[in-house]
């Protein structure tokens, strides 16, 4: 474990807790894409298949349970909670899951470190995580404005992956056998996807105005 990865995990944890707290507190999911949240629940499910077979550390297992629990709770709130679900804008949140799931699955079958079910699922989760934010970014562009909590949520998600990139660079130099080029490429693609959002987020923060994403 290094400081970059710990900071990345804490930022990631904070982002999902901020979102869960927002939905739980104000009983609203306005501006939140259910599609993205469902994709994240799928990312964690396919990535943590080894949660009960490979014990890494208490920290690792606890964090996996928190990410699984929080992502499924968020999906439950938006789908099932009698008050929250009323604020879900299903007419605007129309991104098709399978446009992302199927290409990631095909790619994982052909490009992976080892052709086993768990390894292909793990690789699939990496590719899917890189693009899972797209329905949320599309929704933000459609609804033009975003409330600052959603902006912070997306910002923290991007920041966590950027910290992970620093972690991979650090591990590349400190651990001789640490080679995970698939992780690195997926992680860089993911962070680049956030880059334009970062740009507009900083612009709005600097000019102290509501965040407007270009159509």
């Amino acid at each position: 474990m290094n400081i970059f990865r710990l900071a990345g995990d804490m930022t990631h944890l904070f982002s999902v807790l901020v979102l869960l707290l927002k939905i739980h507190t104000i009983k609203s999911c306005a501006g939140i894409s259910l599609k993205t949240q469902e994709l994240y629940a799928l990312v964690f499910t396919t990535r943590y298949l080894d949660i009960f077979t490979d014990f890494i550390s208490l920290y690792n297992t606890v964090m996996k349970l928190i990410f699984l629990g929080s992502s499924f709770s968020i999906v439950w709130y938006i789908r099932r909670h009698k008050i929250v679900r009323r604020s879900y804008d299903k007419d605007q949140d129309t991104f098709r899951h399978y446009f992302l799931v199927i290409p990631c699955l095909v790619l994982a079958v052909f490009i992976n470190h080892k052709f086993t079910f768990k390894e292909v699922m793990w690789t699939f989760s990496l590719y899917l995580e890189a693009v899972a934010i797209l329905p949320q970014l599309v929704l933000l562009q459609r609804t033009r404005n975003i409330d600052n909590l959603t902006g912070q949520y997306v910002f923290l998600l991007g920041a966590y992956r950027a910290l992970y990139i620093l972690n991979w660079i650090y591990r590349h130099f400190t651990e001789p056998h640490y080679v995970h080029w698939i992780t690195w490429i997926a992680g860089v693609v993911q962070t680049l996807l956030y880059a334009d959002f970062f740009y507009y987020y900083f612009q709005s923060w600097k000019n102290n105005e509501k965040l407007q994403l270009p159509a």
């Binding site: 470190h113 972690n167 056998h177 080679v179």
Partner: peptide, 10 residues
């Protein structure tokens, strides 16, 4: 190669 396929990251 020597790549450890143990995924120790979240």
């Amino acid at each position: 190669g020597g790549t450890t396929l143990k995924h120790d990251e979240l």
